[in-house]
Nucleic acid binder design. Structure first.
Length: 592
RNA sequence: GGGCGUGUAGCAUAGCUGGAUAAUGCAUCGGCCUCCUAAGCCGAAGACCGCGGGUUCAAAUCCUGCCGCGCCCGCCA
């Protein structure tokens, strides 16, 4: 709790100096208490006691005695060598309600740090609909974008469009050479397109890609391979006609994919095409520079690589950046892309699947070699299905479109049951918000480096520990506020009013809520700067839970008259919940 | 074989820049709607923190060796 720490750190420092401790190593030992029933901050005194050859229990006690009179401190205790400090609740209320807690805005541009951050995420090849596994990147990346904005950074969300290379070439070839009949004939035995998504290009056009892939596995494919090879080669040398053909092939598919993301509340500020760096000559210049490096090596056929083994890379040490025919590779273009990105932002963050770890390392080392900075990368593990790895080929996939439909449908069933008086239109609106939020939250709440298994029951759980739990607390807060207005109270002026916080009684519920609120900014900071969105997800659950406890203990509206303190706290919590929910893509509806 | 990651109650997870009695949800058992939305609240029970060593006043957390699982080790993207 930074709020309390800032207030008392100096005081503790003085007490320690008095006791004979010099230096400030103790500062990093002063940490949030593990169990909040014991305090807000704790200082284990063992190492300090050792330094002074004193009894830690006694040392803790003497510091406690020294600092107990500070108005910010409600309770200090020395227990078994730990100094436990609990904030004075009335002081805390005063601090928290006087604007010391930043609410922020995850959607706007309310910048306070002035730091420019470019976050690249998703960047999926435009060759088929999002399945739940691929969508983890988008959900994680977009949450990072939102959390950075909430924190006050100036963020640009970018999608790197893979518009060249073999995958797009296969798609373009198929569209140019196969009729619908040929495609369906080739794919006999496969599940047809779900009628719900007919006409959606990512579901529809992908059939051509799949058919082509299947044909390539068959006999006598040399002619096809040659033609595809010609397209790849042309695209990698910047042939504009071929690149245009590619674009008209992939763009509808990409649009379909973006429609799915948009339903999840995910969008991008900029799209940058991979071909850009070939066309404008950056890649050629880069390859020239790389071939002049001292760790440059060359294969018999003229292919070029950097020997990263000389820089400590273990395993396969040759990092190829140029083919024998002189063309660039994906990784080469990625380096050029990063150099370009560094020209437009203070910080770079990439969201990548764990399969890109080695590649990420190689690109980072090459960038270092070039005297460039290295981007921060958020790696995530894949989502499996109970049956195993997700694979479109085996039909072992859950499409995000289907998941969202199902989520909405199940949420609608629950809303109809719980609120029989709502109109069908309202039911569907609430269900959509609940469905989307639950799907996002279930992915965002777990640590990115944990691989997890997708299960329908869990993805569609709407109870405590899920997005709807948080949404529900928010609607409670909203509804209380409306009640106050209905009762004729001037909510705005009550919120702006000065209260003598030192005179207020503080039931358990409000105490816990105030402490949770006081931690809010600390956790956002950590979540953003350590790239751990799940920490903030947990904070939102804590906040919702604390709000529920407050709601239980502190009746805001009694006989038509709002309690000013309670209303102020409730409104602060509501605003923090709302902004925080937007920070992870939960939709803060006002009624459910 | 090498590199990286992961292993925590029946299940799913948090905690991993070392600190106290290991936290949360689901499932299980019990209680709460004449009172601001019960998608809620209160309580009970449930853990050799993968296994073995080591460092430390203190280890789920750091080091090390095993074991299980995942990802990667293309002149593919």
């Amino acid at each position: 709790m930074k709020l309390l720490r800032d207030e008392i750190e100096q005081l503790i420092g003085q007490a320690l100096v008095k006791a004979g401790i010099s230096g400030d190593n103790w500062r990093q030992m002063l940490a949030p208490s593990r169990d909040t029933s014991q305090g807000d901050l704790s200082l284990p005194c063992f190492p300090l006691a050792k330094q002074l050859s004193r009894n830690p229990v006694e040392l803790a006690q003497s510091i406690a005695d020294e600092i107990s009179s500070n108005p910010a401190i409600g309770e200090v205790s020395a227990v078994g060598g730990y100094l436990n400090i609990k904030a004075n609740v009335n002081w805390l209320a005063q601090q928290v309600l006087s604007g010391k807690v930043r609410i922020g805005d995850a959607l706007g541009t309310m910048n306070s740090t002035g730091r420019k951050v470019l976050i690249e995420h998703t960047s999926a090849n435009p060759n088929g609909p999002f399945h739940v596994g691929r969508a983890r990147n988008a959900i994680l990346g977009d949450s990072l974008v939102r959390l950075h904005r909430l924190f006050g950074n100036e963020v640009r969300a970018e999608y790197y469009v893979d518009d060249m290379g073999k995958q797009v070439a296969v798609l373009a070839w198929a569209l140019a050479n196969l009729s619908k009949e040929q495609v369906e004939q080739t794919l006999v035995g496969r599940d047809p397109v779900n009628p719900r998504w007919s006409g959606k290009a990512d579901h529809e056009t992908v059939r051509w890609y799949q058919a082509a892939q299947k044909m390539r596995e068959g006999e006598n494919t040399q002619a096809i391979e040659d033609e595809i090879g010609r397209l790849v080669h042309a695209s990698e040398h910047g042939d504009q006609d071929v690149l245009d053909q590619f674009e008209s092939a992939y763009q509808p598919v990409l649009d379909g994919m973006l429609t799915t993301l948009s339903r999840l509340g995910i969008d991008f500020d900029t799209f940058t095409k991979e071909s850009k760096f070939v066309i404008d000559g950056d890649v050629a210049k880069l390859m020239q520079r790389l071939s002049e490096m001292e760790i440059y090596g060359e294969a018999d056929n003229g292919a070029g690589y950097l020997d990263l083994g000389q820089r400590g890379l273990k395993g396969k040490t040759e990092f190829f950046f140029r083919r024998g025919d002189g063309s660039s590779l994906y990784a080469t273009r990625d380096i050029a892309y990063h150099m370009w990105k560094w020209q437009q932002s203070d910080d770079l963050i990439n969201v990548l699947g764990e399969d890109h770890k080695l590649q990420g390392k190689q690109v980072a080392m090459a960038l270092t070699e070039l005297g460039e900075r290295v981007p921060e990368v958020l790696f995530y593990s894949f989502i499996k299905l109970p049956e195993g790895k997700m694979s479109t080929r085996k039909g072992n996939v859950v499409f995000m479109d289907d998941l969202l439909e199902e989520a909405q449908a199940q949420a609608a069933t629950i809303v109809r049951e719980l609120r029989p008086d709502y109109s069908e239109e309202k039911v569907m609106e609430i269900a959509e918000a609940v469905g989307v939020s639950a799907v996002r939250f279930n992915i965002i709440k777990v640590s990115p480096d944990k691989g997890f298994t997708f299960r329908w029951e869990e993805a569609l759980a709407f109870e405590a520990g899920s997005a709807p739990f948080i949404m529900y607390s928010h609607t409670r807060a909203h509804s209380v506020m409306l009640r106050c207005i209905e009762a004729g109270a001037d909510v705005d002026s009550i919120i702006a009013s000065e209260i003598d916080y030192s005179q207020q009684e503080m039931p358990t519920g409000i105490v816990e809520l105030l402490r949770t609120i006081a931690r809010h900014n600390d956790i956002l900071d950590k979540a953003v700067n350590m790239r751990k969105p799940h920490l903030f997800a947990a904070q939102l659950l804590d906040l919702a839970n604390a709000y529920n406890g407050f709601y239980r203990d502190c009746h805001i509206l009694v006989e038509g008259v709002p309690n000013p303190l309670y209303l102020q706290v409730s409104e602060l919590a509501r605003n923090l919940l709302k902004a925080g929910m937007q920070g992870v893509g939960i939709i803060p509806i006002e009624q459910m």
